[in-house]
Amino acid sequence: MGQFGSHLKLLGKMTLKNKSSLFWVFVYPLLLVTMMSIAFRGAGMKLQPIPVAAEQGFYYTVFLENIDMLDLTVMDSHEAEKALREGKVAGYFRADGVLIIREDSSESRILGEIGDELKRAAAAGRQGINPDFSTQYVSIAEQEADLLFDILSMTVAMFTLYAYFSGIGMIDLLQANLSPLAARLSTTPLSRLSFLTAGTLINTCLSFLEMILVALYLKFIWGINFLSDLPRTLLLFLAACFFGVAVGLFVGSSNKLSTKAKIPLGISIMLVLGAFGGMMGAELRLYLDRHLPWLNRGNPVNLIGRLLYRLNALSSTREYTAGILILVFGALVLSLSSLLFLQRRQFKSL
């Protein structure tokens, strides 16, 4: 064990004895999800079956009928287009496999996901045919929609990345130019690898506990279930928290900004990433999906939020494995890069 045990003990005690950090880790997320639940629930945002049409002759009608969250009506194409225009349905599946959905509706994500699932199944040849399941967005009218689960997915995703702050805190203890204590520790035989490993372990576990607490709170107090696919969701939380710590380590060690500057910077970036992912409503996300699609492809909050949403709202595991691998691989790369940055021991000024 050597120094590793000492570091684990130190960092564990420091976290548990720091009231401010306990507040930000455990209390603040609960307060924020409470506020968001109250704010968005008040707008009539309970999940209801989504009205959807399928054109006569659509091959997967039976499949769609078995999806609980869809309220499916089979009609001809004229009726379907009229129903869509009038807002009676959120989208319709054409007989040729094309899914037409309203671009401004929050159900668009759900329908889009279902369309993608069908496309995947078809590509795998399970149904023996290979229709074009491309999705076309059409703009028809404004509509109040059920956003709560969608928004909370992004909010919970953002919380997983709050482990960023613990990463910043670790670097503050290791890089001599950031604090007197770090300067002092730099003159001791402290092993940075051992310290970072212990700190990453402790802080990932702590953030993971926080996420479980948030999920339990949402489930039992607000009836919003982010634990419907428990094992996969827990693994996602774990990978996301690890990623959050690693981002903190990287940002902490890779530049000359002071710790005081890095903390608000982190908060701002996470809020912006959350907003891009749809935390403030679907409009911005939909706009970015159409005009700047690359932006959300590289957005970790969006990645985690979408995976959470798929797992718990759609029971879909699409992109799950790839998502977990991206997070874990990204976290490893960022952590190792931080270790390289920390090899710099001498500074121009302290």
Binding site: Q3, G5, S6, K9, L10, K13, M14, K17, N18, S179, P180, L181, A183, R184, L185, T188, P189, L190
Partner: peptide, 19 residues
């Protein structure tokens, strides 16, 4: 330059553990 949150003995024993 020590850990404000920790007790006197925890601080000193942590530094001892580094050596």
């Amino acid at each position: 330059a020590y850990f404000e949150e920790l007790s006197v003995i925890d601080n000193i024993s942590y530094f001892a553990g580094l050596y």
